[in-house]
Amino acid sequence: MQVNWTGVFPAVATQMNEDGSIDFDMTAEQIEALIEAGVDGLVMLGSVGENTALDPEEKIAVLKLAVEITKGRIPVLSGVAESSTRSAIRYVQECEKIGADGLMLLPGMVYTADPRENIEHFRTVANATKLPIMIYNNPGAYRIDIKPEEFNQLADVKNLVAIKESSGDPRRITDIYNACGDRFVLFCGMDDLVMETQVLGAVGWISGFTDAFPKESVALWKLLSEGKYKEALEIYRWFTPVLHMDVHAKLVQYIKLAQEMTGVGKPHVRAPRLPLVGKELETIKATIQKAIDTRPSL
């Protein structure tokens, strides 16, 4: 189906069993819960989906499941986080065969490319598929910062259509617009900047904690989209202590713990990630529990 690049697109967690194997049944249940809550699309196999910890055949199996469960009700995107341009090309072509509706393309993993190499990576992968692509900029996590003027060098690649902006600087939304005009659709990529970036022109939100609080996330975005900022601010202030966890290195553990506590998932992760323990576990659980106990009535 055609991707309508707007709204809430959760970065869907890949549910695991305690032994680190994929729990396909729980992943399917999670997808249904997100659709029921009213999300606008799904991003499978992103950072929260533990893309880089999965084997190639596991990624294909997870994406196939999402396409089958969704049945065209909302678009399904796949993260592309391969270590080489060649492997990224192979993967995006598999995504196209499976029936994915779009892609979220990261820079090549492991090697820290310079701007010339990075632009060539995006261009080459995009030219290998007909699927529409969102470029994911997250310098904090992946050590590569795609500057606004660099995006402009990709303006001629027709299927590069959107940008997930996760630099942590909301000024980037304006800078990208000033550099590129309205050539790219802009998405917020950090949960605790969703209100700020929406005001500045982001029309969508790739969200981690929507996995655990889907109804609240959809309600918050709806209010923002309608310009009801006073009402939105009430939800945002309630949500922000939890949303801050989305920008931590252990966001996957935090999100999956929140999913367990809200009854929509399991806390298990795949090594090298390990379960939370000790004081960290106590602190994170307390923050999530407070949010659960004070949930706004929608």
Rank of each mutant, 00 (worst) to 15 (best):
D293G: 14
M16Y: 05
V76H: 04
E50I: 12
Y236I: 02
D19V: 07
L65E: 01
V199I: 15
T210W: 03
Q93P: 10
L298E: 13
H121N: 14
A219K: 11
A219Q: 13
Y142V: 10
A271Q: 09
A249T: 10
W5F: 15
N152K: 15
A271N: 11
A258I: 09
T6L: 07
N138H: 12
I288Q: 02
K279S: 14
I22T: 11
E280W: 02
P56H: 04
N118S: 10
L131N: 03
M1E: 09
V80K: 13
E196Y: 00
E18L: 02
L54N: 08
L154F: 10
I22R: 04
G102M: 05
T210D: 03
L200H: 01
E29W: 01
G41P: 00
G46S: 08
A271M: 11
Y136D: 06
V264L: 10
L131I: 06
R86I: 12
T240H: 06
P272F: 04
R123A: 15
R273I: 08
R143W: 02
R116I: 12
Y236V: 02
V76A: 07
T262D: 04
Y111E: 14
C180F: 06
Q30T: 14
D156T: 09
F122A: 03
E68W: 06
V76Q: 03
M245A: 12
R237I: 14
P115R: 03
V92L: 08
I288W: 07
L45S: 06
V12S: 04
V269N: 00
T294D: 15
A126F: 12
G79Y: 06
V3G: 09
V125Y: 07
S84D: 10
F213T: 08
A155S: 13
R172F: 01
V43D: 02
L186C: 05
E117L: 09
L160C: 04
L160N: 07
P115N: 01
K290F: 05
I163M: 05
A212K: 00
D169I: 14
A53E: 11
V277S: 10
V161L: 05
T210S: 12
I144Q: 12
E282D: 14
G227S: 13
E96R: 11
R73C: 00
T70P: 05
P241N: 05
E120W: 02
V76T: 08
L281W: 04
K290I: 01
A13I: 07
R73M: 01
Y177W: 11
V39K: 08
A28M: 07
I31L: 13
K256V: 08
G168D: 11
R116S: 12
D19I: 10
D246I: 05
M261Y: 04
K147L: 15
N178F: 07
D293K: 11
A291I: 07
D23C: 02
K285M: 11
E165F: 01
E57M: 08
R143V: 12
V67Y: 05
C188E: 03
V8M: 14
V247G: 08
V247Q: 06
L154Q: 03
A11L: 12
T85P: 06
I133W: 00
C95P: 03
V62E: 08
G46W: 00
P107Q: 10
F151C: 03
G79T: 02
E260H: 01
C95Y: 00
P272R: 06
G189V: 05
Y136A: 02
D211A: 13
L63G: 06
L154P: 08
